[in-house]
Simulated assay, not measured.
Amino acid sequence: MADFSNDGGLWASRAFGASAGAAVSLIYLLPKSGREAASRFFSGLSCGLIFGGPTGIWLAERLGIADRLSASEVMLSGSAAASLCAWWVLGVLARVARQWK
């Protein structure tokens, strides 16, 4: 199940999940400008593409449903979760950095 080769379907699932997670993060908290929207979208997209596989495996194992999901489902959900969480983690880090100037 953890064998994520260079299958085109898995890359499509990864890209779709990352895009969906980034879009939801924009809808959930509206950006103040176009530049912020682009920054948030592309940071979410890149985090979803990079960390989608490990996040999906971690989530599936944590929930105890790893044996019931296909590789595409694991990749899709992991990419969406990583993409959605990316901006929130960056926001927390920015607030901490502002406090510690």
Rank of each mutant, 00 (worst) to 15 (best):
V96R: 08
W11T: 01
G17L: 10
S77K: 02
M75D: 03
G48P: 06
F41S: 04
A66C: 05
S77Q: 06
A66H: 07
L30Q: 15
A81G: 08
A81C: 13
G34S: 06
G21S: 04
E36N: 09
A80D: 00
S77P: 00
S72M: 07
M75Y: 00
G8S: 11
M1V: 14
Q99W: 07
L59I: 12
S43W: 03
V96P: 01
A66F: 10
S19D: 02
S13Q: 04
S72A: 12
G34H: 03
S13A: 13
M75Q: 11
A2F: 15
G64L: 10
N6Q: 15
L76D: 00
G53Q: 04
W11M: 07
G56P: 00
S72Y: 05
V92K: 09
G44M: 10
F42Y: 12
F16K: 05
R40Q: 11
S43L: 08
A20C: 05
C85L: 14
L49D: 01
R62N: 09
L10N: 04
V92R: 11
C85D: 07
G56A: 05
R98S: 12
G44P: 10
M1Q: 12
R35A: 15
W11E: 05
L29I: 12
A60I: 04
A38Q: 07
P31N: 09
S83I: 01
S5A: 08
A86W: 01
W11Q: 09
S25Y: 06
I57M: 07
T55E: 10
L69D: 10
R98W: 00
P31A: 09
A22Q: 10
A97C: 09
L63V: 12
I57T: 03
A2K: 13
E73L: 09
V74M: 13
A66I: 11
S70W: 06
F41C: 07
A22N: 06
S79L: 10
P31K: 02
S79M: 09
L59W: 05
A23D: 00
L59Y: 06
L69Q: 11
F51C: 06
I65S: 02
C47V: 14
D3S: 15
A66N: 13
N6E: 15
F42K: 08
F42V: 15
K101F: 11
P31E: 07
W58Y: 14
D3E: 14
I50M: 05
L63K: 05
D67K: 15
P54A: 03
G9N: 12
S43Y: 04
G56I: 02
L59H: 01
V92S: 05
R98F: 03
M1S: 14
D7P: 04
S43F: 03
G9S: 11
L76M: 07
V96D: 07
C47D: 00
A81P: 08
L29Q: 12
E61L: 13
E36H: 11
A12N: 10
D7K: 11
V89S: 06
L59T: 00
S83F: 00
V92C: 03
C85A: 15
G9L: 11
I57G: 01
R62A: 10
S25N: 10
G8P: 07
A12L: 14
A37C: 13
S13L: 00
R14Y: 02
Y28K: 05
G91M: 11
R62W: 11
V89K: 09
S77H: 06
R14L: 09
A66Q: 10
T55F: 12
F16I: 13
T55R: 03
L93W: 05
F16C: 02
A37W: 08
G91P: 04
G53K: 02
D67N: 13
G64T: 12
E61H: 13
